[in-house]
Structure formats: structure tokens, C-alpha cells
Simulated scan of single mutants.
Amino acid sequence: MDLERRQALIDVYRDGLLRDTIPFWCNHGIDYKDGGFFTSLNRDGTIIDTDKGVWQQARATWLFAELYNNVEPRDEWLQLAIRGAAFLDQHCYDSTDGRMWFHVTQDGQPIRKRRYAYSECFAAIAYGELALATGEAHYRERANQAFNRFVDHNLNSVEASSKFTATRPSRGMGFPMMTIATAQELRQSIGLVDADHWIDRSVATIREFHLKPDIECVMETVGVDGQLLDHFDGRTLNPGHAIEGAWFIMWEGHLRGDTNLIETGCQMLDWMWNRGWDEKHGGILYFVDVRGLPVQEYWHDMKFWWPQNETILATLLAHLLTGEDKYAQWHRQAHDWAYSHFPDHKHGEWFGYLHRDGSLSSELKGNLWKGPFHLPRMQYMAWRWLEKDLF
């Protein structure tokens, strides 16, 4: 990756973030009446559903606070983050148990709560960035509370019944992976005192149970002792998810100067690139079977936006940390394929859902799952890595 290529990528990521992605959401996604953010948007930004996903309220709040803290202290961004946090405070907690909702109405009436506690981890990083931006103890306390609720629910949950019986106990990679990312954010924003403990514990869990050197694979779901569950759920791999976890671990290795962590992240990327990259059409597939068998989920071969975002980040970081040419080539493949298929050059932002061949499946720009997070985080982190931290 020569200097010309590096500068071209900086321009793409920086300008895409500041001149396209952020303006799209600021122009179309702000609820000035009830607070928070609309994310169920059509191609041109028109609102097609006023319900609000709590994940997206927290993620958008984090994004605007992150931009305020690390790009430019624009009051507009700070005020949007403050409004987002106010919506979380006022409407997104169940007063009966302290858990956060997953899905609420425009004015914050609760609709649904999930058994898992990922709303809490996204709220934690949002409050953390606002604590850094404002210096207010309220946000610091909220960040700590949300993080503690997230880990406690996953490790010691007694109030929420599982949708599974005890017949086939399993463990998933989502919790340790998201613990790494959340603790990294809170260490930076509020100086989370036990961040390293949670990161070390989570990396050890992934290494022990989910990494399978004998078959060169990162397993999404395994038995409680790490064994392969030879059923649809156990055999299903999520390459984009594993690749996202790979760059979390690589980044931790960079921050600590720990080559073993960098090697673990690169190993995860290597294995899941080989399993997830679509050699026929390009792009990262959504699901694949560990044995190459048919996958149960009908969207298995679609191209969603976020696995491409995470692969762009992981391949870029791997190249910057190791200097290996193969990662530069993989990054070029992932970047070029995504940027030739996902961006909407007429209305801005990216489409979220393509067919396997790259043709458009849906004109949605957002919903309860897609909002201002994976794409702008990718643009911001890639710009930052190329121009600042890792130059």
C-alpha cells in the first residue's frame, strides 16, 4: 500500500464520513419532537417506520459523542448525543428490573425486550463518550451501570428465562467479543478500572472455546466445553462476526504492544476470509456451514453491509500492523467490491442488503438493525488508522 493509495483511501473514508454518511443521518434521522433517532428510512431518507430500536439510539449517541471528542468539537454533534442519551434515560429502561428495552415507539413506549443484554453494552459506550465530552458524573455512572448490567446478565442472569432448554447447552462468541469492544471503549472514555481484566478474560474464552486450529475455523456457537455441535445451529459460521472480533483483538494487541494478540487476530482473519469470501461474486457471505453443507437460514448467501465494513477494517489493520502484502490485497478486494456495490450515489449512505451477485435486494437505508454505526465507525476508524495512529 503506497502513499498514493493510502491518501486516496483517507480521502474516501474521511469524506464519506463527513460529507455523506453523517449529513444523511443528520438530515433525515433526528427526531426533534420526541428525542432520539429515526433509523427506519427509505432510500431517499423518508421515514417508513417511526418505531425506535434501542441499539440504534445508543449507537447513534455514541457516534455523535465520538465525533465530538475525536474529530471536531461541534456543538451540533454534542447536542445530538445529549438528546440521544436523554431518550435512553427517559424511555429505554424497564423500571421493574432495570434492564433495557430493545424496541420502543417513537415517544418511548416499550414494545419488546430481548433475552440478551446488548442494548446495555451499546448504552455503556454512549454514556462513556458523553462523560468524556462533558465531564458530567451522571454519564460516567450510567456507563458503569450499563456495563455491569451487561456482564452480569450474561454471566449470572436469573430473571430472564432462556429460549433454549437444558437439553443441548451451548456458548456463543457474541458475549466475549462484545465485552472486548465495550471494555476497550470504556477504558478510553472513563478509565474503566477493570477493563483489562474483562478483555483478558474474553480473549481467553475465545481462544479456548471458539478457535479450532485443527479445522482452521472460528466457531460462532459451540458446546459448553467447546465441542462442535453437529446440528444446523452449531455448524453455522458467521464470517463477518468472527472477522469483527479479529480486529478487536488485533487492536488490543496494538494498544498493548502484544504480538501474540495481533497474531491471534490475524489467524482469525485468515481462517474466516478463506471461509467467508465469495470467490464467485466477491464480498463476504453472511452464513456458511463449517462442513460446507447447506445452511438453514434463507439469507445465508446475501451480502449485508456490516460484514463488508468489518472486513475492510480487519484487513486494513492487519496490513498496517504486519506489513504483509496479502492483507493489503485482501483489503483492496473487500474495499473495491463494497464500494462498487453498496453506496447510493444519488441519495447518500449505503444500502444495507444485496443479493449474492451484488444486485440490490432492498432500498432500506436503516431499520431496527441498521443505523448510523457500522458504516460510520468503519469510515472513522479506517481514516484514523491511516492518517494518525498507525501512519
Rank of each mutant, 00 (worst) to 15 (best):
E136V: 08
A195N: 02
G53N: 05
L88F: 06
Y116E: 14
G84L: 11
D97H: 07
G257M: 05
R187A: 14
A195I: 02
G257K: 05
G366F: 10
M177C: 02
E136I: 04
R291D: 15
D196N: 12
A166L: 09
A124M: 12
R43N: 00
D20M: 00
R187P: 00
R275T: 12
D357N: 15
A246S: 15
L360M: 06
L18E: 10
D51P: 03
M250C: 07
D270E: 05
V12T: 14
T105S: 11
L228G: 00
N260M: 13
E136K: 11
D278M: 09
F24Y: 14
Y139A: 13
A204R: 11
Y116F: 13
G253S: 07
G257R: 03
L320G: 04
A133T: 04
V222Y: 03
G245A: 10
L17G: 01
Y116T: 10
K365Q: 06
M378E: 02
V151F: 03
Y68P: 02
T205F: 00
L321I: 11
M1W: 13
H341A: 07
I262H: 01
L269C: 12
A382H: 04
D200F: 00
E136C: 09
W251K: 10
R207C: 14
A160R: 13
Y68R: 08
A123I: 10
